[in-house]
């Protein structure tokens, strides 16, 4: 009886160790995927205003205006304390 019990325990251990894990046995599930079309960005042509340089002129005028108005603000200092 004792030998049978040892045999059974050893058998269970052997089978348990030799059996491959369940993850290995099941092949990875491959689901067929249909390629989804990706939208390629179409380069948008610059606007006429941008191409003519109107936007650059506007920006330059604004920056010059800002520089002068800041100078005027600096000139408004009072030195009396």
């Amino acid at each position: 009886m004792k030998q049978l019990a040892i045999f059974l325990i050893l058998s269970i251990l052997f089978l348990g160790c030799s059996a491959p894990p369940s993850e290995k046995t099941t092949p990875p599930k491959i689901t067929p995927t249909t390629p989804t079309p990706t939208a390629t960005p179409i380069p948008t042509p610059p606007s006429i205003e941008s191409e003519l340089g109107i936007e650059d002129i506007q920006k330059e005028l604004e920056e010059l205006e800002k520089l002068l108005s800041e100078l005027q603000e600096l000139e408004n200092i009072t030195f009396e304390i």
Binding site: L64, L67, E75
Partner: peptide
């Protein structure tokens, strides 16, 4: 400062 700013302004204009 004014003269320098004005000169820069005139060149840009």
């Amino acid at each position: 400062m004014r003269l320098i700013a004005y000169e820069h302004f005139v060149i840009q204009m």
